[in-house]
């Protein structure tokens, strides 16, 4: 039960929330949504909720229910939502029946594009554009998923309890992208971009290194020792955060 709820949180708050980043990073995705003007809410009974708004070629994601959107999708359980994310279930349209055609024919195009970029293969990663987008999305998924796990997965909560207050920055050298997690008083905030004066930082030598690291294709200990990945600062924060990162595939793998 709790596992299903945590997975739903990850699917919504760490996977689906990547849509704005996808639209910014991928011209095909941007073109797909260019003419869309629609708001969609995803509401999981006794679970997470989020609002996606497509407008003027942009996509905005917000946690929770916001505004009077054209479409509201309900899910009777977290498992129901997870089945939809796995492509095996369909949502219950609570509002927006006249948009069913859009939801059936148009929305899957962007969802499929997201899935395409989140399921790398060696052949796909050989394409520099794919590598760049996959790296950005995987980095974002990692920090947003870590936030959910740190707060809701029973084991990760214990691990997160050992993380001192402060920010952990993950940055791909030389110029990013970057993402961060801020631990403060039992709260955890995840975000994209740099953060000032991090208490600990993980620097990836380049995009390919970051991609291999984040996709579990690079042994972290070897990568750190060889300098491909550099850790600095309060490394116990990184040690414990790594334990949380390592549990993400158990939910989303």
């Amino acid at each position: 039960m709790i596992e299903s709820l945590v997975k739903a949180n990850l699917n919504l708050y760490a996977v689906l929330r990547n849509l704005p980043l996808l639209v910014k990073s991928d011209p095909v995705a941007a073109k797909t949504v260019a003419q869309w003007r629609i708001g969609i809410q995803f509401v999981v009974w006794r679970g997470p909720a989020a609002t996606l708004v497509f407008e003027d070629g942009t996509c905005v994601f917000e946690r929770g229910r916001h505004g009077n959107t054209e479409v509201v999708f309900g899910f009777i359980t977290p498992a129901h939502f997870n089945r939809m994310m796995d492509g095996k279930g369909t949502p219950v349209p609570l509002k927006g029946f006249r948009h069913l055609g859009f939801m059936r024919n148009e929305f899957p195009k962007i969802a499929d594009r997201l899935a395409f970029f989140l399921k790398p293969t060696d052949a796909k990663l050989a394409d520099p554009h794919y590598l760049a987008v996959n790296t950005r999305l995987t980095l974002a998924t990692a920090v947003f998923a870590a936030r959910e796990l740190a707060l809701f997965d029973p084991t990760c909560r214990q691990v997160a309890g050992r993380i001192r207050d402060g920010a952990v920055l993950l940055k791909i050298l030389p110029d990013g992208p970057s993402a961060h997690l801020i631990f403060e008083g039992g709260e955890v905030t995840a975000g994209l971009g740099d953060v000032q004066r991090p208490m600990a930082r993980i620097d990836f030598r380049d995009q390919a290194t970051a991609n291999a690291f984040l996709n579990g294709r690079l042994d972290p200990f070897t990568a750190i020792a060889s300098g491909e990945v550099a850790i600095r600062g309060q490394t116990p924060m990184i040690d414990n955060l790594s334990l949380i990162f390592d549990r993400i595939p158990g939910y989303l793998g």
Partner: peptide, 22 residues
């Protein structure tokens, strides 16, 4: 070592906590 030993050097001798390992 990295080719034949897990982590290259494992356990408390791992270079990972040495900052920077270089």
């Amino acid at each position: 070592a990295a080719g034949v030993i897990p982590g290259g050097i494992y356990g408390h001798f791992s270079p990972a906590p040495l900052v920077p390992p270089s």
